[in-house]
């Protein structure tokens, strides 16, 4: 029975095996490409991808595209955070707001927001604005739902205590309710960040207008496969780095961690 062995893997051994796997895949990929087992057009060698990556960084096109995409993703995310937290708290504090917003949130939460892209283009043009607003629309729902469920669960003793100590309503809002919601809001941010990135990239792939996604599609149309790979690798790295950064942030600010 492998239960005991599965429970006690040697960390060093499994780390070595992981590194070995990545190495084997990269070597197999490189040699398959070098041996022309598949045409360059379909699978360029690892070294060709690295050359394309370095070229893109050297001539400034890759950092520029990345900057445009990240600007759209984070502007949208910021907007979603402001609107989402405000709406979540309003829903927790007022039954009327909850009654009014609930059916829209229930309906829109599972909807594939990218389908609204042509509508956003129609209303806000094909430049930054439509993409930023689509990112905000995609990432606002997890934030609203998390803020609402955190704010509704704030311990009433805390609110009553600060009321009896003479705090005003704004003070209670900013000093009691909002801090109590931080961990859930932060957890929702970890969900919303990849959604924001994927929406920004996809909107650019579909509608153009610069950024990572637009250049990726452009490279694919002209069969510049090493560039396609270089951009995918960059997107992958960006996703990983931001997720790690969120974890580091959470560890730096213990108030943002969910206590369970």
């Amino acid at each position: 029975m492998s239960a005991e062995r599965a429970a006690l893997p040697s960390p060093l051994k499994s780390y070595a095996l992981s590194t070995l796997t990545v190495g084997v895949i990269l070597i197999a990929w490189e040699s398959a490409a070098r041996a022309k087992l598949v045409p360059d057009l379909f699978l360029p060698s690892v070294s060709a991808v690295l050359v394309a990556l370095r070229g893109g960084i050297a001539d400034g096109s890759l950092p520029l595209d990345l900057g445009v995409s990240l600007y759209r993703a984070f502007a949208g995310l910021l907007l979603a955070a402001v609107v989402g937290v405000a709406a979540g708290i309003a829903m927790a504090r007022s039954a009327l707001t909850r009654w009014f917003l609930d059916p829209f949130i229930s309906l829109a939460f599972p909807a594939p927001k990218i389908a609204f892209l042509p509508i956003f283009i129609l209303w806000f043009g094909i430049d930054h604005m439509s993409k930023i607003l689509l990112v905000a629309f995609s990432s606002v729902f997890p934030i609203v739902i998390a803020t609402y469920s955190a704010a509704i669960a704030v311990n009433h003793l805390l609110i009553w205590s600060s009321l009896s100590l003479g705090s005003s309503r704004p003070t209670i809002m900013w000093r009691v309710i909002l801090p109590a919601c931080y961990p859930r809001i932060f957890a929702a941010f970890r969900v919303a960040l990849p959604v924001a990135l994927i929406t920004a990239f996809t909107a650019e792939m579909v509608a153009g207008g610069g950024g990572m996604g637009a250049t990726l599609m452009y490279a694919q149309r002209f069969f510049e496969t090493p560039t396609v790979f270089a951009y995918i690798v960059t997107m992958l790295a960006v996703g990983l780095i931001f997720d790690k950064a969120m974890l580091v942030l959470r560890d730096r600010f213990p108030a943002w961690r969910e206590s369970s």
Binding site: R5, S14, S18, T202, M205, G213, L236
Partner: peptide
């Protein structure tokens, strides 16, 4: 643990990839 060690770098790396990026490929 052997399968885990082999698969986890692949899962970890692709988990945060914006998935539509592979569509052109």
């Amino acid at each position: 643990w052997i399968f885990n060690a082999i698969a986890s770098p692949l899962v970890g790396a692709t988990y945060s990839l914006p998935k539509t990026a592979i569509v052109p490929l």
